[in-house]
Design a protein around this nucleic acid. Structure first.
Lengths: 186, 186
DNA sequence: GTTGTTGCAAATTGTTTGCACTGGT
DNA sequence: ACCAGTGCAAACAATTTGCAACAAC
């Protein structure tokens, strides 16, 4: 069923649910601690505007859909499933069409302002690119919760892969899978 | 992009292209060294039969679709994308319906005789469960090729996750992502 | 004979695309 | 004014599901 409650209405207030009690597989990311997102409207607006400049610098245009997508991503702060982006955008600006959300996400991805990551179970999640400051993710296969991890965690592995296979690891592109403490216990 | 290559009925499930000119997203794994798969018909049959016993032991039934799916998996030896399983099964037994393939894969998964892994881009791949002997995977995000890696590669990471977050890593459940040597060069 | 499984076809879900039009620059 | 980007609806692929018929035990 994919809990159709990705995020509330209007502004998420403080911290939606730092440690919720996930159902089957909500896959909705919980707010990580360091995930720095602005629940502050001003900050969100500023960020959106900033990206706007960047878009124009690349010859792209700043439009309502893009503003809406960016705002949605900035607000939710964490990783947001594609489907959730669609609904979140609908709240920001109901006139924005789903198709535009997808197109926008792709466009913004190519521009590098948003990045996507693949969650084992539920599909693709998007998040604003934190300048160079990438982090990794681990998802519980039981409850779907996403855990944020320090980027360095896979450094050693990356080194090994590079030297033994010439494989350049992109650590943040897919979420590691496993079982979280809560689910392992319960 | 999104090369519409789903095409379908074609692609004899033999050895696609071990190491050559990767297309859009083949994702079909080349035969890894230790992946032990039987290209030998007798061996395949024996393996299928063996699983049959195991199924019955669990109160499940051995049916044509299941035999076909198992045979297809045993033949291809490596990881096989869901879509590929469907076509491979069609070759083994054309009377088997696609829906049955999905249901069978799920049933066999729950039984533990087959395992699935999530590839970042292309979906889910299945493979026969090698008793305890799991290996990891890394997929090139450019060409889609899947690299098999030793299971121990993530042991350290698993240890860290376990102690710091109580997270039980399941290393083989998702493929790591990155760029393979060939693609990095070209 | 039971009852788990299948085949089929229709329903779902998630994403993409062609086209005419709108709005940003 | 120009054309990138949008809305819309329909195409699309991939997977799921209700149900009656079927076959494994």
């Amino acid at each position: 069923m994919t809990g159709p409650v990705p995020d509330g209405h209007r502004h998420p207030g403080e911290h939606p649910h730092p440690h919720r009690h996930p159902g089957p597989h909500p896959a909705t990311a919980a707010h990580p601690s360091g995930a720095a997102t602005s629940s502050d409207p001003d900050e969100v607006a500023a960020l959106v505007e900033q990206v706007g400049d960047r878009l124009r610098a690349h010859g792209e245009r700043m439009t309502a859909p893009r503003r809406a997508v960016l705002t949605a991503l900035a607000r939710s702060g964490g990783h947001v499933l594609a489907a959730e982006v669609v609904t979140a955008v609908a709240e920001v600006d109901p006139t924005v069409h789903r198709a535009s959300v997808y197109r926008t996400l792709e466009a913004l991805s190519e521009l590098g302002v948003v990045q996507h990551l693949h969650l084992g179970h539920g599909g693709t999640a998007y998040h604003l690119a934190r300048g160079g400051h990438t982090h990794l993710h681990a998802q519980c296969r039981v409850c779907g919760a996403v855990l944020d991890l320090p980027a360095e965690l896979l450094d050693d592995v990356a080194r090994v892969l590079a030297s033994r296979d010439g494989f350049a690891l992109d650590p943040g592109h897919v979420a590691l899978s496993g079982t979280c403490a809560r689910c392992a216990a319960g």
